[in-house]
Design a protein around this nucleic acid. Structure first.
Lengths: 225, 225
DNA sequence: ACAAAAGTGTTAGGCATACACCCATGG
DNA sequence: CCATGGGTGTATGCCTAACACTTTTGT
């Protein structure tokens, strides 16, 4: 496949992924510590160059599996950052994605290019490399907005969960408390959940009913939250 | 500025722009007829390669000025299309934008690479090159959604306009009629408009009051339509 | 019996929607 | 005086938001 001769010298193309989870009531982001220049020792989003012939979404999916050890989670393209000076080594266009992973299934792993992948609360991020702070901020805005009209929370929760866990997930992302009764009423009315009939006991209190999502695919709603 | 030696062979990076206007009650898209292979004679979105050191948004702005003859209009990044097979010549990543231009100020011009730039109603597009039909469809969805929570209509209207013209713009984009009284009440309550005190007579009827937008910058609203 | 979280309904206010007639002007 | 589009208010229903007590279980 020959390249058009009129194409200008192309920038490098990378994919970076904002991997969100909700852990201990806090929306958190997976970061890796950079092993090399530039920004050695700073934290950065997991990412990498898009391989020849590869789609950026496949690169993002590959990164999710390598760094977070998860498959079949919600992933969506976020924005493309292409400020020429964003990487001191030269022009790198970053096609960014965000993903939602259930905390219980995330398995963070080290790789040779980066150390110590680790989830940080979105409200307490360390110093970030490149323009990654902008990317995380933008991903948070998109996530909060999208939560209002899509069922993407399915990708943050285990297969079975209690209504309290579901509500806590929404509260963590939106950053405000939600009324217990109103939340349950609206959510059940949406018809996305199925009661398993089972219950789970968390401590020495009354056991909570367990629910599952009827479908684990993205669905757009008429605006619920 | 040296390039990182580990970067894979990079795809070309282009910017394509979906330029919308509302003309004769129909949401319309600016297309150009392709002068060269591939897809010679098909219609395509105005676009071009991003020059070295240039940001894609600047490329989009440049294309807007070259092809539509407008400046200072609403432009927003839409999505990045990077399917490796989308261009038969080889991998081309297209960072797409959409823009809104007032019909009265658009000045379409020919260039050497394309002929006969022309607005087509979004509901009656000709055969499009590459994956440009997908791009236009996606841009339409984004525009309709965004119209519900932002004031972007300012970029489709002339400086002074009547309430009927404003409403007709919304109706053309949303594809459904809006109640005259409810629309006016809601829109005036938003506080974005200023009555000029002037009127304009369209035919032999009662003259219509003219309004302007207080601000011609994008503002996000609490969801109005 | 006590502690802790689960589970459950009602009310009031605000917002969206539906709807019809008079006004100003030119011909 | 007629034709044409401009301009204006009210009533209804729905959805959202606020709010507190009882139930189940383990200790």
């Amino acid at each position: 496949m020959s390249r058009n001769p009129n194409v200008p010298d192309s920038p490098a193309v990378a994919a970076d992924v904002v991997i969100f989870t909700v852990r201990e009531g806090a929306l958190s982001v997976l970061l890796v510590e950079r092993a090399w220049e530039p920004f050695t020792g700073d934290w950065a989003l997991p990412g990498g160059f898009v391989k020849p012939g590869e789609r950026s979404v496949d690169a993002a999916t590959r990164i999710l599996e390598e760094k977070a050890g998860v498959r079949d989670v919600f992933v969506e393209q976020l924005y493309t950052f292409d400020e020429p000076s964003r990487d001191p080594r030269g022009p790198v266009v970053s096609i960014t994605y965000y993903a939602l992973v259930p905390w219980d299934s995330a398995l963070v792993r080290e790789t040779d290019a980066t150390w110590a992948p680790k989830f940080f609360p979105a409200e307490a991020l360390p110093k970030l490399a490149f323009d990654h702070r902008d990317i995380v901020r933008y991903a948070g805005e998109r996530l909060r907005a999208k939560l209002g009209y899509a069922n993407i929370a399915y990708s943050l929760l285990p297969r079975e969960f209690t209504m309290t866990e579901l509500r806590a997930t929404y509260e963590a992302i939106l950053g405000r408390p939600l009324d217990k009764r109103n939340f349950q009423k609206k959510y059940l009315d949406l018809g996305l959940l199925k009661a398993t009939g089972k219950t789970r006991q968390q401590g020495r209190q009354r056991p909570a009913r367990l629910y599952t999502f009827k479908s684990r695919k993205p669905i757009e709603l008429a605006r619920a939250f």
